[in-house]
Measured scan of single mutants.
Amino acid sequence: CHSECLGNCSQPDDPTKCVACRNFYLDGRCVETCPPPYYHFQDWRCVNFSFCQDLHHKCKNSRRQGCHQYVIHNNKCIPECPSGYTMNSSNLLCTPCLGPCPKVCHLLEGEKTIDSVTSAQELRGCTVINGSLIINIRGGNNLAAELEANLGLIEEISGYLKIRRSYALVSLSFFRKLRLIRGETLEIGNYSFYALDNQNLRQLWDWSKHNLTITQGKLFFHYNPKLCLSEIHKMEEVSGTKGRQERNDIALKTNGDQASCENELLKFSYIRTSFDKILLRWEPYWPPDFRDLLGFMLFYKEAPYQNVTEFDGQDACGSNSWTVVDIDPPLRSNDPKSQNHPGWLMRGLKPWTQYAIFVKTLVTFSDERRTYGAKSDIIYVQTDATNPSVPLDPISVSNSSSQIILKWKPPSDPNGNITHYLVFWERQAEDSELFELDYCLKGLKLPSRTWSPPFESEDSQKHNQSEYEDSAGECCSCPKTDSQILKELEESSFRKTFEDYLHNVVFVPRKT
């Protein structure tokens, strides 16, 4: 048989008469490798580009789960590009990614509803959504962080984005990388972005840091009482949809009607710091009717980097990364020049730590249904340095008659930039024990000054392991946590139920 035959053949030295091919099969003959313009397919066939392209389009058009959109890589027609490569849609070739590779997620039936953290986790790592997304989240724990972890990498949506009755959302900033909504599939009414009845939605994105392009379709905003109209108009300008909307697409009466839409800028007039305090004062603000001013709200939190936005980490279910302080308005003076500047002394802060701070007014709604208010920009203030805590785990070892090696770990709280350490030492008198000992005694162990690591005695271990207080009263049991108490109650309830079950099964009433 021919060298490319495997198993047997019907005619000697003829690659077209093989029972099976050793390498690849091409047009009725066995070959060692697939010549151009053919590609290896499933490690035994040679196919042309049209064959591989037909497989790709067949799966793409069917949208069946589990099928493969075949691509070409290293002269092979394979189910998908290997790690580190992405497909070129024009020629199906796998090309190296520039940075992290995109991950295209194809949605069944063309859309997916995100109504819980669990459903959001199914899209973790996706960068391109081939379909439409509907966000409908009523509640949950730590929602802002969970949504950002699972949806934060999405850069492109081919269909539309719909935010509907998501009472738990305060902001859409968890879509931190969303840059493009194509609108290839539109919501009824030709809408590519749809926001309806979101009672706590206050911000779409921080438009000073976020760009969003909507290729096709219109915007729809109705019944978002805490979303200011200025935020919607800003989205029109940034996304390129200005002029597409009709009169009733953006409701003037049901958007922002319960919001404090600040239209003035508060400026800080005085800032002073110490290692654990920050004193702030800002310019006074009074609405047209000074009785509408209820006070100020001061927001602050630790910020290692200057990239904080107002609604980071917030949701309507209680999660809030900001510390909020309510401040009463100052006494009002008739003389504008003698107006008191409101302020606040922030206490209990960490030394040498940068804080993000902003302040906003708290006002009631005027009778004319106009909203007044003022808010400052987010500023960054760093507390002063102070003395560091003591170095940890000092170790001293003498390696000769004239040297001592000293080692330690950095302090747990540096409280500033540590530039150097101060080492103090003092000579001590020799131990009298060394002169009084009889060095001729056998088995004498000389006193040693070398360091030995501390260890816990058996008594201390027994005390720590004991669940009861000892007789001397030195140790006591740790208080039980809520989960331990709940577990004990469940076990007790189970024992009672099981005992009742045994009584009912074992003891049967005697027939009379």
Rank of each mutant, 00 (worst) to 15 (best):
residue 376 S to K: 01
residue 374 A to T: 03
residue 187 E to K: 09
residue 311 F to M: 13
residue 340 N to W: 15
residue 167 Y to Q: 04
residue 293 L to S: 04
residue 257 D to C: 14
residue 214 I to R: 04
residue 141 N to R: 11
residue 339 Q to T: 07
residue 362 L to Q: 09
residue 295 G to S: 13
residue 302 E to D: 06
residue 178 L to K: 00
residue 160 Y to I: 15
residue 204 L to I: 14
residue 155 E to I: 07
residue 190 N to Q: 15
residue 261 C to D: 02
residue 198 N to W: 00
residue 320 N to P: 03
residue 292 D to Q: 04
residue 367 D to A: 03
residue 190 N to M: 11
residue 158 S to Y: 10
residue 311 F to N: 09
residue 215 T to E: 11
residue 331 L to M: 11
residue 263 N to Y: 12
residue 184 E to Q: 10
residue 362 L to G: 12
residue 405 I to T: 04
residue 358 F to G: 09
residue 233 H to F: 02
residue 363 V to I: 15
residue 273 T to L: 04
residue 251 A to T: 13
residue 358 F to V: 06
residue 175 F to D: 00
residue 388 P to W: 01
residue 368 E to P: 03
residue 409 K to T: 04
residue 120 A to C: 14
residue 297 M to K: 04
residue 133 L to S: 00
residue 167 Y to L: 15
residue 278 I to H: 00
residue 297 M to C: 12
residue 285 Y to F: 13
residue 388 P to E: 01
residue 286 W to K: 10
residue 211 N to R: 12
residue 131 G to W: 00
residue 398 S to F: 14
residue 215 T to R: 15
residue 195 A to P: 00
residue 340 N to H: 12
residue 252 L to Y: 10
residue 114 I to K: 01
residue 165 R to M: 14
residue 332 R to T: 13
residue 352 W to G: 01
residue 237 E to R: 02
residue 317 C to Y: 11
residue 227 L to T: 03
residue 166 S to G: 08
residue 214 I to Y: 04
residue 283 E to R: 12
residue 106 H to Q: 12
residue 340 N to Q: 12
residue 307 N to Q: 02
residue 228 C to P: 01
residue 259 A to C: 14
residue 141 N to G: 12
residue 228 C to H: 01
residue 403 Q to V: 05
residue 314 Q to R: 15
residue 397 V to G: 04
residue 361 T to N: 03
residue 241 T to Q: 07
residue 403 Q to C: 02
residue 173 S to P: 02
residue 321 S to K: 07
residue 371 T to I: 09
residue 382 Q to N: 06
residue 340 N to K: 14
residue 188 I to T: 11
residue 351 P to D: 02
residue 193 F to E: 00
residue 136 N to Q: 01
residue 352 W to D: 11
residue 376 S to M: 01
residue 309 T to Q: 11
residue 180 L to P: 00
residue 136 N to R: 10
residue 137 I to S: 02
residue 289 D to L: 03
residue 383 T to H: 00
residue 410 P to K: 03
residue 266 L to F: 04
residue 398 S to L: 04
residue 247 R to C: 03
residue 115 D to H: 05
residue 288 P to V: 14
residue 140 G to R: 11
residue 264 E to K: 04
residue 313 G to N: 04
residue 189 G to Y: 03
residue 271 I to S: 06
residue 302 E to Y: 08
residue 150 N to A: 04
residue 266 L to T: 04
residue 308 V to G: 01
residue 252 L to M: 08
residue 153 L to G: 14
residue 134 I to R: 06
residue 232 I to G: 01
residue 144 A to S: 11
residue 115 D to C: 02
residue 173 S to I: 07
residue 282 W to V: 07
residue 315 D to V: 05
residue 296 F to D: 03
residue 326 D to R: 02
residue 166 S to D: 01
residue 383 T to C: 06
residue 354 Q to W: 08
residue 404 I to C: 07
residue 106 H to T: 11
residue 297 M to P: 00
residue 171 S to V: 03
residue 200 N to G: 09
residue 205 W to F: 10
residue 144 A to F: 15
residue 305 Y to M: 14
residue 228 C to V: 02
residue 288 P to G: 03
residue 166 S to N: 12
residue 376 S to D: 00
residue 153 L to H: 05
residue 207 W to G: 05
residue 108 L to W: 09
residue 379 I to C: 11
residue 188 I to C: 06
residue 114 I to W: 02
residue 166 S to V: 03
residue 286 W to T: 07
residue 298 L to I: 04
residue 382 Q to V: 02
residue 211 N to T: 13
residue 254 T to L: 13
residue 124 R to S: 11
residue 119 S to K: 05
residue 297 M to V: 11
residue 378 I to R: 03
residue 397 V to Y: 06
residue 181 I to N: 00
residue 358 F to T: 07
residue 104 V to S: 12
residue 282 W to R: 00
residue 320 N to T: 14
residue 361 T to H: 03
residue 194 Y to M: 11
residue 262 E to S: 05
residue 218 K to Q: 02
residue 264 E to A: 09
residue 358 F to C: 00
residue 123 L to F: 08
residue 148 E to P: 08
residue 256 G to L: 08
residue 294 L to D: 07
residue 392 L to W: 15
residue 230 S to L: 07
residue 284 P to M: 13
residue 117 V to T: 04
residue 264 E to H: 02
residue 259 A to S: 10
residue 228 C to T: 09
residue 362 L to R: 15
residue 310 E to T: 02
residue 249 D to S: 10
residue 274 S to G: 03
residue 253 K to G: 07
residue 159 G to K: 01
residue 104 V to E: 15
residue 128 V to K: 08
residue 221 F to K: 00
residue 285 Y to N: 08
residue 409 K to A: 06
residue 127 T to C: 10
residue 170 V to C: 06
residue 200 N to W: 03
residue 220 F to K: 13
residue 162 K to H: 12
residue 175 F to A: 15
residue 349 L to F: 01
residue 103 K to Q: 11
residue 351 P to F: 13
residue 172 L to M: 08
residue 294 L to K: 13
residue 108 L to T: 06
residue 239 S to N: 02
residue 303 A to K: 15
residue 113 T to C: 11
residue 380 Y to R: 02
residue 184 E to W: 09
residue 278 I to G: 00
residue 242 K to R: 11
residue 111 E to R: 09
residue 280 L to S: 02
residue 267 K to P: 08
residue 334 N to C: 10
residue 324 V to S: 03
residue 115 D to Y: 05
residue 118 T to M: 07
residue 162 K to Y: 07
residue 109 E to R: 15
residue 251 A to M: 11
residue 347 R to H: 09
residue 259 A to F: 08
residue 241 T to N: 10
residue 333 S to Y: 04
residue 326 D to F: 12
residue 330 P to Q: 09
residue 358 F to Q: 10
residue 252 L to A: 08
residue 237 E to K: 15
residue 222 H to L: 15
residue 114 I to F: 03
residue 167 Y to M: 15
residue 402 S to N: 15
residue 385 A to L: 03
residue 364 T to A: 14
residue 161 L to N: 00
residue 327 I to R: 02
residue 287 P to C: 02
residue 158 S to E: 06
residue 175 F to H: 01
residue 400 S to H: 11
residue 150 N to H: 11
residue 195 A to L: 10
residue 267 K to Y: 15
residue 319 S to Q: 09
residue 157 I to M: 05
residue 317 C to P: 04
residue 386 T to W: 06
residue 133 L to Q: 00
residue 181 I to Y: 00
residue 238 V to E: 04
residue 361 T to M: 10
residue 300 Y to E: 01
residue 223 Y to C: 15
residue 254 T to V: 07
residue 344 W to A: 15
residue 291 R to M: 14
residue 258 Q to W: 09
residue 301 K to M: 06
residue 187 E to F: 09
residue 243 G to P: 02
residue 232 I to S: 02
residue 411 P to D: 01
residue 105 C to G: 00
residue 383 T to A: 01
residue 305 Y to N: 11
residue 337 K to W: 12
residue 127 T to I: 11
residue 130 N to C: 02
residue 137 I to A: 10
residue 112 K to V: 08
residue 160 Y to H: 14
residue 334 N to K: 14
residue 370 R to Q: 04
residue 112 K to G: 15
residue 164 R to T: 15
residue 314 Q to P: 02
residue 352 W to E: 03
residue 405 I to R: 12
residue 257 D to A: 03
residue 262 E to G: 05
residue 104 V to M: 12
residue 399 N to F: 12
residue 346 M to E: 02
residue 173 S to Y: 11
residue 131 G to C: 02
residue 197 D to L: 12
residue 362 L to S: 15
residue 304 P to L: 04
residue 391 P to V: 04
residue 283 E to K: 06
residue 309 T to A: 07
residue 373 G to K: 04
residue 263 N to H: 03
residue 371 T to A: 05
residue 114 I to Q: 00
residue 215 T to H: 07
residue 319 S to G: 05
residue 307 N to M: 05
residue 236 E to M: 05
residue 249 D to V: 11
residue 379 I to H: 05
residue 172 L to D: 00
residue 216 Q to T: 11
residue 192 S to R: 00
residue 145 A to G: 01
residue 125 G to T: 02
residue 394 P to D: 03
residue 160 Y to R: 05
residue 199 Q to D: 15
residue 296 F to C: 07
residue 185 T to H: 09
residue 112 K to T: 15
residue 281 R to M: 12
residue 370 R to M: 06
residue 300 Y to L: 08
residue 300 Y to C: 14
residue 360 K to H: 02
residue 268 F to S: 01
residue 104 V to R: 02
residue 141 N to V: 14
residue 317 C to N: 04
residue 330 P to K: 07
